[in-house]
Design a protein around this nucleic acid. Structure first.
Length: 588
RNA sequence: GCGCCCGUGGCUCAGCUGGAUAGAGCGUCGCCCUCCGGAGGCGAAGGUCACAGGUUCGAAUCCUGUCGGGCGCGCCA
């Protein structure tokens, strides 16, 4: 409908250009908007205000001329000039009625578009270190990233969802060592667990599994393990916990050998990654690819990338380390890629990873990161630029933290004390539907307060239930129809849509017509929250209609027409809910 | 100190990329089924859009500054 109006306006502008009212060299960007309220029409256009300068006449006068020049259209019943020079369009009722046909025709595909024209987009999200279970902070990134990806699919893009697995580097070695130490404990050794180790209960479980599968293969006496290590910082102001843990890692490698160490390491990695995978799957989040950092290192791609940067003269050596001159590309300081001990940094892997992404031929690469990583954006873009890639290829979407509230009080969380709420616990407490819905309710750059009580409450305060209830209610009415031994006659209903003249019915049809546009903007702007707001609006309009009118009426034609409408509403509610990863129950 | 994000009714947030009287939900108050699920609906009260300038026909929206909150500024990942 928008497009129709745009076309008409385009014709009008062309005609005025012929008449010399408007200059010929216009850069046209015709914007058609939905009217704020019924009196201002269904659509409005500010074209006259925008063009008044180049036409050298008052906006209102130009608006009148444009209206005169507009071709006739059966879809439009009335056109008005209002306010400072807006052109308001009132659609003919029949134009909205067609929407119902479109919904039934397209079914689950209604609202989807081809605007993406099959262009390939990569979306990387969550990518949490596999050193422990996902917590509620990751949950928001998961829900947001998954929904953005699904929205892009709905908009006709070809989407590649990816999880970057940080399975290389120091943190993973700390994990492997932690697992080994717990294993040793289970073998009866007395271990003083390092301050910097991973202390979660799940590490013990992995250690136990390791003992089950490998017996005493990795057993070494505690004295041997702990001998001559830098002192740990168990007490305040003494020792060096970092040096201690690094010493332990070295010791593990020594005593276990390459083979054995790898086995312990993989036991930890696979267990935790498997858990994360399952967790996300249960959350309705799936990936095309789990991309391993280790594979990047082992394939030599990291090294190649460093050589490439060196070759371009973007690296220099200082104090034994190799630095990337990211300040040449807008970063605030240069970054180390190879440490003085010869190891490459996490950043080096990430540069290689993003180079790889850039060379895979995506139209767009989207990274969803926690907002605490925002300082990281300039250096990655700098690296892309240095390697001759378009930095704009990469869009980094930063997701702010979510604070949990219980009984009006903030739930304190800290990784250090291990007192963080996991995503799994959240799902178990409030359910997948509420969690997915609540997470995308706010735009991503907005700090979010996640009210646990509200998410759990089965009442009108809970927006998830409110929307789901609308869907269930429609299904219920349908069941009711059958109980009265009636059925919906689609053909008759669609033949008599002109009977839908009530204001509530008009409003619903207008909302259904708006859905495709909504999906499009939500997808292109990466704004799932738009869908949430739309859902609530549509549900409200339906509930209002429900309270005001009977659907199961004696007049057969009207009844079928009304069912055509509410079933269309049901379809759209379901489509939108599923897009958010929320179920659309038939009864509650 | 520097950088990024945020600041809209008591609370939580929208506001369609500069438009016509700033909107929802919750909470508060008052109403509505002998009728398809009251997990619903209708109505009322409640706002200097943090503050001060600027850009223009027009600013909650763009620019500058101030104040307040969050986050980040490692040869950690």
């Amino acid at each position: 409908m928008k497009q129709l109006i745009k076309n008409l306006l385009c014709d009008a502008v062309f005609q005025l250009q012929q008449e010399g009212v408007l200059p010929k060299d216009l850069k046209l960007d015709i914007r058609v908007e939905r009217g704020r309220n019924k009196e201002l029409g269904d659509f409005a256009c500010n074209l006259a205000l925008v063009l008044s300068k180049s036409a050298r006449c008052k906006p209102r006068d130009l608006a009148e001329k444009l209206v005169q020049a507009l071709p006739e259209s059966a879809s439009i019943s009335r056109i008005e000039v209002a306010g400072p020079g807006f052109i308001n369009f009132f659609m003919a009722p029949a134009a909205f009625q067609k929407v119902i046909l479109a919904v039934h025709e397209a079914g689950e595909a209604y609202g989807r578009s081809t605007i993406g024209r099959g262009r390939r987009v990569q979306v990387e999200f969550v990518s949490a270190n596999p050193t422990g279970p996902l917590h509620v902070g990751h949950g928001r990134g998961a829900a947001y990233g998954a929904t953005v990806a699904d929205l892009l699919v709905a908009a006709g893009f070809e989407v590649h969802r990816e999880y970057y697995v940080n399975d290389a580097g120091r943190q993973m070695n700390i994990l492997a060592t932690s697992v080994w130490l717990r294993y040793l404990e289970l073998c009866g050794e007395e271990i003083i667990f390092p301050v910097s180790g991973y202390r979660g209960e799940y590490i013990r479980d992995i250690g136990a599994a390791l003992k089950n599968s490998h017996g005493n293969t990795f057993l070494h006496a505690a004295q041997t393990v702990m001998a001559d290590l830098p002192e740990d910082a168990i007490e305040e102001g003494r020792g060096d916990k970092e040096a201690h843990i690094d010493g332990l890692i070295q010791r593990a490698r020594q005593l276990l050998g390459e083979q054995g160490y790898r086995t312990v390491f993989n036991a930890g990695l696979e267990s935790i990654l498997g858990d994360i995978r399952k967790d996300l799957e249960e959350f309705g989040v799936v990936y095309e690819e789990w991309f391993s950092e280790r594979s990047l290192v082992e394939s030599g791609l990291v090294e190649k990338t460093i050589e490439r940067l060196k070759g371009c003269g973007h690296l220099y050596e200082k104090e034994g380390a190799w630095w990337f001159k990211s300040t040449d590309f807008g970063d605030e300081k240069d970054r180390v890629v190879v440490r003085d001990n010869g190891e490459t940094t996490y950043f080096a892997s990430d540069v290689a990873y993003h180079l790889d992404k850039a060379e895979r031929g995506y139209e767009k690469v989207i990274d969803v990161w926690g907002a605490d990583h925002h300082g990281y954006v300039p250096r990655v873009k700098a690296a892309l630029a240095a390697m001759g890639k378009q930095p704009d290829l990469l869009d980094v979407l930063l997701v702010q933290f979510a604070n949990l509230y219980r009984d009006g009080k903030k739930v304190q969380m800290s990784t250090r004390s291990g007192s963080f709420v996991t995503l799994r616990e959240l799902r178990e407490e409030v359910g997948k539907d509420a969690a997915r819905f609540f997470y995308v309710m706010r735009k991503c750059e907005q700090h979010m307060d996640f009210d646990l009580e509200l998410a759990k409450s089965q009442s009108n305060e809970n927006p998830v239930y409110y929307v789901q209830y609308a869907h269930a209610r429609i299904c219920s009415v349908m069941r009711q129809l059958k109980e009265r031994e009636l059925s919906w006659n689609r053909e008759q209903g669609e033949a008599h849509l002109s009977l839908l003249t009530e204001a509530h019915e008009q409003a619903l049809m207008a909302s259904l017509a708006r859905y495709p546009e909504l999906l499009e903007t939500a997808a292109l702007n990466h704004e799932p929250h738009q869908v949430v707001y739309y859902l609530r609006d549509l549900a409200t309009e339906f509930h209002t209609y429900y309270n005001a009118h009977q659907f199961i009426v004696d007049d057969e034609k009207l009844r079928n027409a009304r069912f055509s409408l509410i079933l269309a509403v049901g379809h759209v509610l379901k489509n939108a809910l599923l897009l958010l990863g929320v179920s659309a129950p038939e009864s509650m």
